[in-house]
Design a protein around this nucleic acid. Sequence first.
DNA 1: CAAATAATAGGACAACTGTCCTAAAAAATC
DNA 2: GATTTTTTAGGACAGTTGTCCTATTATTTG
Lengths: 186, 186
Amino acid sequence: MTKITTGVRIVEKADILFYQQGFEHTSFAQIAAVVRISRGNFYYHFKTKDELLDAVIRLRLSNTQQMLDDWEAEGNETIDRIRCFVRILVSNQRDIQHFGCPVGTLTAELSKLNHPLEKHANKVFTLFHGWLKHQFLSLGRDDADQLAMHLIALSQGVATLANAFKDEKFIRNEEKRINEWLDEFA
Amino acid sequence: MTKITTGVRIVEKADILFYQQGFEHTSFAQIAAVVRISRGNFYYHFKTKDELLDAVIRLRLSNTQQMLDDWEAEGNETIDRIRCFVRILVSNQRDIQHFGCPVGTLTAELSKLNHPLEKHANKVFTLFHGWLKHQFLSLGRDDADQLAMHLIALSQGVATLANAFKDEKFIRNEEKRINEWLDEFA
DNA sequence: CAAATAATAGGACAACTGTCCTAAAAAATC
DNA sequence: GATTTTTTAGGACAGTTGTCCTATTATTTG
């Protein structure tokens, strides 16, 4: 049982708050309150807000990579691996309705802020894209690149509308539609 | 030639800045500087930032309705009317790459802020949805509601990824894909 | 032209932001 | 147990935020 350092706890809480409230709208004071440290102590762990954001993005990259590796290791058929990706929409349905997709909303926010870490945040998208492309290539598709982009775009759109309309049925409908589309590749 | 009042100019500039920089990240001071009025004078036109946001949303609703009415009046076939909607992605390509979709990004931001005007902003989506549903109904589809949602979701996803990857070709690819999908209904 | 209304400018206000300093407490090391 | 290093708390700092007040200038109305 390894001890969880304060630095890690800060990043984990910041990760959640950035997702639920947005990066800019989340203040040091609020994170400090949630982590239960003083604002002054914050500076010891992270000198700037961007430094903290960088750590949050690295955490997300690591978590995403881990998830993709797990899907790869489960020993499913390729097409079912892709369905794992689609299933995120359903299993994270509640959060998505409340806060949208964590990847899409962060990159959108950083884009508007002209934030230097925008490209860094986009790497999460690149991770998904590389993995999906690899799957479609395994299915012998030479348009794997486009197919991967298309599938990510689809799920992004579903997340955006689910967040706007808070409609549970909509996600189910779209999941079904996507899976039917995937049947063509099986 | 009707005179453009200062109040209207404020709303128009705020509309642009909210789109390019986000609602929260845009300050009164900045809008005042762009409109070339003093910060003090701002209070005469809009008492609170939410009041200004409300006006911006009403402007967007009005502009959107106008655009939909124009598409309706152009006398095209129904399927080509729907293609008008798809074409926004291409004709607004540059802005979308820089700032994403104005509708999707605003609703996403307001959702994270838990802002009371979130539902008001969502009405722009409802406008598009109602119009698209009507078009699909004209094509005799009894799943017009779902089809309209699906098409909006698609374009939202395309906008999100185009913004993240700044990829011009991607939008073209997806436009083509959507139009091929629409061919089935012709 | 005079009176009333509309519009503007400049600044005050408290609250909050990210950042940073310093002194004290806790923990680890020797 | 003494010393060094790590971690913490509290507060200061200048800058910005949305909001609001008041005095002055334009414009319209009678």
